[in-house]
Structure formats: structure tokens, C-alpha cells
């Protein structure tokens, strides 16, 4: 096993883990990353650094991860298959390891249609499953994807993946997690959980397959900043199923941000009670400063 990642140590110890997310800026300003890192420091065991999320050009995940490390954050480098073929991916993984990154999240990546360069050509030489297998083989077999031996130091990442329990076909979502586990995933961060019924059902299927004992599951939690944001997500993000109840709570609140944090804490408390949940992944989108309050209020720090 790897054991070089703090996140891995925390999860192995059985402590309820917290990961957060840091979105790099749409410019080259390191100060933005430092500022966000400072807000998140101490609030999470590791912090995902997104890789041009929603296909919008941002500072690279690895570069921003290194800046975050300088601020005392342990990064989880997100790596998507959208923009790189297997040559570029492996090259970046060697570089990320060489620069000190120890956690890797393997993603297929959002389609470029959603971003600011919809005219671009996508790559998708690999899918997330194959990326997991690749990262594991770099570490455990000390081999590149082509089968060639790595001479010298191999990247030994603690490897994660994502899963969306709310996507279709629903019955395939737990078997798909099993497939990710078999391909090398050691931890899973899920799509944002608002639909607790569906998440609970998915977790039941996950437990039936015995997966919760073999992989650390961290449900995604995102504080709603306003009733407007909640309505937008309800309408525009397929499968997210933001319940009307939350929208009403936000609308009726004097301070919507405060209520958004209350809801996030409620959600954390609920998922924490589900057997097989090993931690939470708090994604405060462009609202990193909310994370310390949320984890403190949820009693996680």
C-alpha cells in the first residue's frame, strides 16, 4: 500500500474524513490560489484541485496544487481524460508525483460543450476506468500503460474516482462502483447529494455488493448560497434533484447564506448516519470560505 498520503492515513484510521475543493482561477494569479488555500487550511484532510472543471480554461490542477501545497494544503490532483491522451496523462502524473502530490482523482471529464471552448476537439483516448487502471499500474506494477517498465521512481498515488449515484441507468451505478474498485479506485467522491432517498438506495446496493468495506465513500456536499442558486441547480443540473423544501427554507431565511450552511450541515449529519460512508467531500463552489464553518458546525473539526 501507499501510505504516503495524509488522506489515506486518515481514512485508514477510521476517522471520518473531510475533503474539500479548490477551483483554480481563470488567470495566472497564484495569489488567488493562496487565498483560497488559506481559507481551507485546517478544515479538510485533503483538497481537490479541479482540472478545468466544466471544460473552462483555468490554471492547471497540478500547478495550482503545488501552490496550495506551499500553503500547507494536501492536494488531490484531479485528472481528466478530456484534454490529454495517454502520453500526456502519464507525463503529467510523473510531474505531479515529482512535485509532491500524493492523491489523484481519475475522471473522464465534463464534455467541452459545457465550457468556454465548445469548438475544441476532445481527446478521450482513455475513460476514467482505464485511467484508474493506468494509475494503479504505474504504482503497483511499476509499468507504463504500454507495458514498459518504469526505471527509477514510480508515482505511487492514493487513487480516487467519482461516481454519480443519480445518473442512469440507476441499477448500473453500484456495479459501476465495483468496476472502479476493481480498476484501482481506493476512494470515491460522489456527485452532490441532495436527493437523500436515492443516495440511501444507492448505498444499500453498494453494501449488498460489499463495496463499502473495500472502498472509502465520501458523498459530495455543496452548500446552497441562495434560493436562486438552488433553483438554478434544480432546473439545470440533471439528476441533482434539489428538493423544494430546501428552496423554501432558503427563501424564508433572513440570511440565505447562513441557511445554506445550515442545510449543508443537515446533509452531512444525515449521510454520516448511513452505514458505509467514510467521510464527506465538501464542494463550496466559489465559496471556499464557507467550508471551515460547515465542518466545524458538523462537529468534524
Amino acid at each position: 500500500m501507499t501510505e504516503e498520503s495524509n488522506l489515506e492515513k486518515v481514512l485508514k484510521s477510521g476517522k471520518f474524513a473531510v475533503t474539500a475543493e479548490l477551483g483554480p482561477p481563470k488567470n495566472g494569479d497564484a495569489k488567488v490560489v493562496r487565498e483560497k488555500a488559506k481559507q481551507l487550511k485546517g478544515a479538510a484532510d485533503a483538497v481537490n484541485i479541479t482540472d478545468c472543471q466544466t471544460a473552462i480554461v483555468r490554471m492547471s490542477s497540478i500547478a495550482a496544487g503545488v501552490i496550495a501545497m506551499e500553503e500547507g494544503i494536501e492536494p488531490v490532483i484531479q485528472m481528466t481524460c478530456r484534454d490529454r491522451n495517454r502520453i500526456a496523462i502519464q507525463s503529467d502524473l510523473l510531474g505531479a508525483w515529482g512535485l509532491g502530490a500524493r492523491n489523484l482523482l481519475c475522471l473522464t471529464g465534463d464534455h467541452q460543450k459545457f465550457g468556454n471552448h465548445p469548438q475544441s476537439k476532445n481527446v478521450f483516448d482513455l475513460d476514467s476506468m482505464q485511467l484508474l487502471d493506468l494509475a494503479r499500474n504505474l504504482r503497483d506494477a511499476k509499468k507504463f500503460q504500454c507495458g514498459e517498465e518504469i526505471e527509477g521512481e514510480e508515482p505511487r498515488f492514493f487513487i480516487g474516482a467519482a461516481e454519480n449515484p443519480f445518473a442512469d441507468p440507476f441499477e448500473y451505478r453500484a456495479p459501476r462502483l465495483a468496476k472502479k474498485l476493481a480498476a484501482g479506485a481506493q476512494f470515491i467522491q460522489t456527485q452532490i447529494v441532495y436527493n437523500m432517498d436515492k443516495f440511501t438506495k444507492w448505498m444499500e446496493a453498494v453494501r449488498q455488493l460489499g463495496l463499502d468495506k473495500k472502498i472509502y465513500i465520501l458523498p459530495g456536499v455543496t452548500p446552497l448560497k441562495s434560493a436562486g442558486m438552488a433553483r438554478y441547480m434544480q432546473k439545470n443540473v440533471p439528476g441533482l434533484d434539489v428538493p423544494d423544501e430546501y428552496i423554501e427554507r432558503l427563501k424564508g431565511a433572513d440570511d440565505q447564506q447562513k441557511e445554506g450552511i445550515n442545510i449543508a450541515v443537515d446533509i452531512i449529519n444525515q449521510v454520516r448516519g448511513i452505514e458505509g460512508v467514510a467521510g464527506v467531500h465538501v464542494m463550496a463552489i466559489e465559496w471556499e470560505s464557507a467550508v471551515p464553518t460547515i465542518v466545524e458546525r458538523a462537529g468534524l473539526r
Binding site: 473522464t108 476506468m129 454519480n164 445518473a167 442512469d168 440533471p238
Partner: peptide, 16 residues
């Protein structure tokens, strides 16, 4: 498949 996935659907499959 818009992402030429080879190991099943991505997380963006919704209502077919």
C-alpha cells in the same frame, strides 16, 4: 458516445 467511453456510461446519462 460523446466521450467514446468504453466501460459503461459516464455520470451524465439521464433519462436515456
Amino acid at each position: 458516445c460523446a466521450k467514446t467511453m468504453l466501460n459503461g456510461p459516464c455520470g451524465g446519462s439521464q433519462n436515456g
